[in-house]
């Protein structure tokens, strides 16, 4: 187990370095920050001063060298715009995104496994068809559109919920609800299919021949086997949420990392973008390791 985690960590570190190199150079292709930050009538002298202040006048390879040196000292530089350490800004945003992602995923997992299993047990029945239709709609509905409709209905017409921002638990309901829909739809379908094939597996027949009761037959013998493909999809969907739900966060003015990232890219706030990508990547790598661990806990064949 420790070996597995170690291997994954080393592999992750490698991908992380490649990612940093790519982001560093690609972001510098987007143009000169000085042109964006300074007033439109700024003199060339002011621009040069700005570049010198932030080290942007040096050759790009030198900039890269300095950046790497700083990162190794856990210094991600200052935000060009807000004059604060970039990493602080990112971590603040993460303090919003992380609970949003976790709450959403927790609800998705519980609901999807429960409803997907019920659909599989009643395959072909009315309940199964109802769940399948709902999940299909969920998996294919465009979230930005639902988000806007939800604001119109619940915030403006009914005035039950605030339109945007954070502050009270009420503010969380719409973002969580909208983010819930797509992963829920997808995972219900995966759970249903996976449960169906697990229920027809020979070991279920053995369990029935042993006289195992229906409860343990379903939740002990079948569910654990059926979870393996489900976990892969859960990981995939959770990664999308950890990335920051750019559209949903923007629509609801939710100060998460997705909104921060898109704002920083538009402002060419390189240090914030870099720090945000690094933190997100680390979060996703940690989650992937957790998924590997979950896999090997669930399936002893993977442990060897």
């Amino acid at each position: 187990m420790i070996k597995l985690v170690g291997q994954r960590a080393i592999a992750s570190l490698l991908s992380l370095s490649v990612l940093m190199v790519m982001v560093f150079f690609l972001s510098r292709l987007t143009g000169d920050p000085a042109a964006l930050f300074l007033p439109i009538d700024a003199t060339e002298q002011m621009k040069e001063q700005f570049r010198a202040l932030h080290g942007l006048d040096r050759p790009i390879l030198e900039q890269f060298g300095l950046y790497i040196r700083d990162v190794l000292h856990l210094d991600f530089g200052e935000s060009l715009r807000r004059a604060r350490p970039a990493i602080d800004i990112v971590l603040e945003a993460y303090a919003w995104t992380l609970p949003l992602a976790l709450i959403t995923m927790a609800l998705v997992i519980v609901a999807a496994i429960f409803l997907g299993s019920i659909a599989a047990f009643n395959v072909g029945g009315v309940i199964d068809r109802g769940i399948s239709v709902v999940s299909l709609i969920g998996a294919s509905a465009p979230d930005f559109w639902i988000a806007i409709v939800a604001i119109v209905v619940f915030a403006i017409n009914l005035a039950w919920l605030p339109t945007s921002g954070v502050g009270t638990p009420w503010h969380w309901i719409m973002p969580v609800g909208i983010l819930f829909i797509r992963p829920f739809g997808l995972i219900v379908q995966v759970v249903r299919g996976s449960m169906l094939s697990a229920l027809s597996a020979p070991y279920v027949k053995t369990a029935r021949a042993k006289g195992v009761k229906n409860g343990p037959l379903i939740f002990v013998h079948t569910l654990r086997n059926a979870m393996l493909p489900v976990i892969t999809v859960i990981g995939d969907q959770a990664a999308a949420l950890l990335n920051g739900a750019v559209i949903v966060e923007t629509i609801f003015g939710f100060p998460g990392v997705g909104k921060l990232m898109i704002d920083s890219i538009l402002q060419r706030d390189f240090n914030v973008v870099m720090a945000a990508i690094l933190v997100t990547a680390i979060a996703i790598f940690i989650m992937n390791i957790l998924i590997d661990i979950a896999y090997s806990i669930l399936d002893p064949r993977i442990r060897q």
């Binding site: 597996a201 020979p202 070991y203 027949k205 053995t206 369990a207 029935r208 021949a209 042993k210 006289g211 195992v212 009761k213 013998h221 654990r224 086997n225 669930l298 399936d299 002893p300 064949r301």
Partner: peptide, 24 residues
């Protein structure tokens, strides 16, 4: 159910498939 296993037990052709892979 109460009879299965207790009075009448069964074994199968493919023991790998018929044993649950995730339990000892």
């Amino acid at each position: 159910r109460a009879l299965n296993g207790k009075k009448i037990a069964m074994i199968f052709q493919d023991p790998l498939g018929h044993l649950n892979p995730v339990y000892t």
